[in-house]
Simulated scan of single mutants.
Amino acid sequence: MEFDGKVVVVTGGSRGMGQEMVRAFAAEGAHVVVASRKLDDCQVVAKAAEAMHGRRALAVPCNVSDWAQCDALIDSVYQQFGQVDVLVNNAGLSPLYPSVDQITEAYFDKVIGVNLKGPFRLASVIGARMAASGGGSIVNISSIEAIRPDPTAIPYAAAKAALNNLTEGLAQTFGSSGVRVNAIQCGPFLTDISNAWTDEMRVLFDNQAALRRCGNPDEITGAALYFASERASFCTGAVLRLDGGVR
């Protein structure tokens, strides 16, 4: 029960890796906040966490690409719990596009908004409040696309590269106040997104990894729990590759 009494906020927490991290933190004693666009999905995960682990769980609808909704999420959490000890910026998306020259401004703004603007706003405001109250941990969920951009995900790759940069910048900003900021740079994981992969894509992703497979959603939890815990007390500004050894 390493996180007994701690408050952990997970964006994109209603499915995939986010849902697994909610479960893992609740199992370690944390009160959890499940944030995602659809309230019904958040409530399902929150109720399950409460039932299984006896922790308080708050479901909050939030499109993190919207600055005002990020602020509303922060207000809701502090009104309910009075604190945030861990923030996991997990929400992300990368819809397919026909070709890079046909990317619209709306598409570009949406991808940058979810993958960069939202994490910046949440980490900046919550990080400042953590600093004022003695410390905390922020974990940004990045992607291998940040260093190896694929032609099918250029805006997403750019946003994740910027998220890596943001991780180190905020680590420097808040470090003297006891707030640690780290990132997990994920390779292909078998989340809901993988349902849209072709058989050829799955074979390619499997073969690119030294372990010859993609990650399972629950395989992110060890890294997330480590970065959020006191075992990582001297670790900040780090970007951990969690990709099965993609080459």
Score class of each variant (00 low, 15 high):
38 K>S: 07
35 A>E: 02
20 E>F: 00
126 I>P: 08
149 P>Q: 03
55 R>N: 04
238 A>F: 03
206 D>E: 15
37 R>A: 00
16 G>K: 07
232 A>K: 10
105 E>F: 11
205 F>G: 01
149 P>H: 06
62 C>I: 06
32 V>D: 04
89 N>H: 04
188 P>K: 05
207 N>F: 11
137 S>D: 02
22 V>L: 10
174 F>I: 01
133 S>F: 09
25 F>A: 00
44 V>T: 15
7 V>E: 00
49 A>S: 14
60 V>Q: 07
14 S>Y: 13
109 D>F: 08
242 L>S: 03
35 A>Q: 03
204 L>N: 05
226 Y>H: 05
209 A>V: 09
75 D>N: 15
7 V>P: 08
122 L>C: 11
99 S>A: 15
147 I>D: 09
233 S>H: 11
219 E>H: 14
161 A>R: 13
70 C>S: 11
134 G>Q: 11
166 L>N: 00
237 G>P: 10
113 G>M: 03
217 P>I: 09
198 T>Q: 07
213 R>H: 12
223 A>G: 00
34 V>N: 06
73 L>R: 08
77 V>N: 04
67 W>V: 14
2 E>N: 10
133 S>V: 07
62 C>H: 00
184 I>G: 06
116 L>Y: 13
185 Q>G: 06
174 F>V: 01
20 E>H: 05
187 G>Y: 09
185 Q>M: 14
219 E>S: 08
134 G>T: 05
143 S>W: 07
210 A>S: 15
195 N>V: 04
25 F>N: 02
16 G>A: 10
